[in-house]
């Protein structure tokens, strides 16, 4: 019994560490995301192909943003448990959402840098990156990539 406990102890520590630090980091990330999204709330971001009023366009160019976000140990563990019984994996949902929102926020930052106020034909891509291998490191990282056409309008 004691031996079993000693064997499980490091894993329990890792789960607690993952939950504690991971949740804090996630909370901070979400705070920074909503702050930046408010900052860029006046920017028009659409996934529509056609740019309206093309005659007033001064300049158009590709903008993009990407982010690679890692899971924490608690998230991986909870997802592993979910694999047994099936159902919705909430811990990974927030992970994907964070990666996508971060990629879009960076794309908007890029657009702002070149003086654009609109981004059209926005496309999103995701891929997962398996960092490390084997049982000891079950963690996955997700990558989100957002790109679109930024448009600078002529001053009227």
């Amino acid at each position: 019994m004691l031996q079993l406990f000693l064997q499980l102890f490091p894993i329990l520590i890792l789960i607690a560490l993952g939950f504690g630090i991971g949740s804090l980091r996630e909370w901070r990330h979400l705070q920074s995301l909503s702050r930046r999204e408010r900052q860029y709330s006046d920017m028009i971001v659409r996934n529509v192909k056609q740019v309206p009023n093309p005659e007033s366009v001064e300049q158009a160019g590709l903008v993009s943003g990407e982010a690679v976000i890692a899971t924490d140990y608690f998230k991986s563990f909870a997802a592993g448990l979910r694999n047994i019984v099936g159902g919705e994996v909430k811990t990974y949902e927030t992970l994907m959402a964070r990666a996508r929102r971060e990629a879009i926020a960076r794309m908007m930052e890029h657009a702002r840098q070149i003086g654009a106020s609109e981004v059209w034909n926005v496309r999103l891509e995701t891929s997962n990156i398996r960092s490390g291998s084997g049982r000891r490191n079950p963690g996955v990282s997700v990558e989100a990539f957002a790109f679109g056409t930024a448009v600078v309008r002529k001053q009227s």
Binding site: R25, E26, S64, I69, A70, D72, I129, S131, S141
Partner: peptide
């Protein structure tokens, strides 16, 4: 990255790598 997989958060090295590669 394997350390980050314990505590979560952004993998800045990978993000830079992908940005540069694209």
């Amino acid at each position: 990255a394997s350390f980050k997989n314990l505590i979560g958060g952004e993998l800045k090295g990978y993000t830079e790598l992908l940005t540069e590669a694209r």
